[in-house]
């Protein structure tokens, strides 16, 4: 298991390098540059600026410099935020985004897994029907619809909670954003657990356990749940992507000072290093989630561990 994990971790680096390389050159292919303003800069000023940021060197040299900096953990200076490094900018916003995402992911799973179990155990009953309706609604309400609607209903109409704002993540301010982000996680996980459990409950070894006279609770908790969770675990990598893109929306809708806004803002401003920094962060986050999912998969299903 250790060797398997180690091999997978080493395997991440080439993928990350490919991602960084592709992103670096695609961004540079885009027309426009960081110093294109409404009013054109005098050529000498522009040349000085480009020299100061190393943009006058050949693209290949710039690329090698960037990768060199990356290996030392340096994401470079931002072109638009004066006197700020990309490291500082991202370090300022990322903890907020990460905390929000982690809480939402946990809440979504905590609600979704039991809901999926209940729906599977009471198949075609009222609980199952209710779960089907709730998950179908949650999947039809993407973050950019659910967020403004929640803000309108509970913030502006009922006035129970603040419509926007963050206040260092106070519970009252965080509740609506977390619900918005957790809703799709809840829906996906409930569906995956329901179908996974239904499939497992039909298997021979569950029938055998029933024949041995084990109770329903024992059968589900000790025998059926572990294999039934496999599809859910496989989905955890994509789940991270759902939360990441959702956080972009949620941070816009609720005015949260996270890192999500840097991606769109950086791309529109041609702030090359800031966009690259966000791609590195998102790339690493997605790759790590996929890796965690794979490792958990191996732990839940020993057949996969065989080389």
């Amino acid at each position: 298991m250790m060797r398997y994990a180690l091999a997978r971790i080493i395997g991440l680096f080439p993928t990350l390098l490919l991602l960084v390389t592709a992103a670096f050159f695609v961004i540079r292919l885009a027309p426009g540059g960081p110093f294109d303003e409404e009013r054109a800069l005098p050529p000498q000023v522009r040349a000085n600026l480009e020299a100061a940021y190393g943009l006058d060197a050949p693209l290949a040299t710039q690329y090698l410099r960037y990768v060199g900096g990356l290996l030392r953990g340096d994401l470079g200076p931002s072109f638009k935020h004066k006197d700020m490094g990309v490291n500082e900018l991202i370090a300022g916003g990322l903890p907020v985004s990460a905390a929000l995402g982690a809480v939402a992911l946990a809440l979504g799973l905590l609600l979704g897994v039991p809901l999926g179990c209940l729906a599977a155990l009471h198949r075609a009953g009222p609980v199952d029907l209710g779960a089907t309706i709730v998950t179908a609604l949650a999947l039809a309400l993407p973050a950019f619809v659910l967020g403004p609607l929640l803000s309108l209903a509970f913030g502006l109409q009922l006035r129970w909670l603040p419509a926007a704002g963050w206040e260092n993540g106070s519970l009252r301010h965080a509740l609506l954003p977390v619900i918005t982000l957790a809703a799709p996680v809840m829906a996906y996980s409930a569906r995956l657990v329901r179908s996974g459990l239904l499939e497992v409950l039909g298997a021979d070894y569950i029938r055998a356990a029933r024949a041995r006279g084990l109770g329903q609770r024992r059968i589900v908790l000790a025998h059926a749940l572990r294999p039934a969770l496999l599809p859910l675990v496989g989905w955890l990598g994509p789940a991270a992507a759902v939360v990441l893109t959702g956080s972009l929306i949620v941070e816009t809708v609720f005015g949260i000072p996270g890192a999500g806004r840097f991606l769109v803002e950086g791309a529109l401003n041609r702030d090359y290093t800031l966009v690259m920094g966000m791609i590195v962060v998102y790339g690493v986050a997605t790759l790590l989630c996929n890796l965690a999912a794979d490792l958990a998969y191996g732990w839940l299903d020993p057949r996969i561990r065989r080389p």
Partner: peptide, 19 residues
């Protein structure tokens, strides 16, 4: 396909949109 999966979707589209 695996590598494209790892690409955050938003970034990809932003690049295309800006290009």
């Amino acid at each position: 396909v695996d590598i494209l999966y790892a690409l955050p979707f938003v970034f990809f589209v932003i690049i295309l949109a800006t290009l």
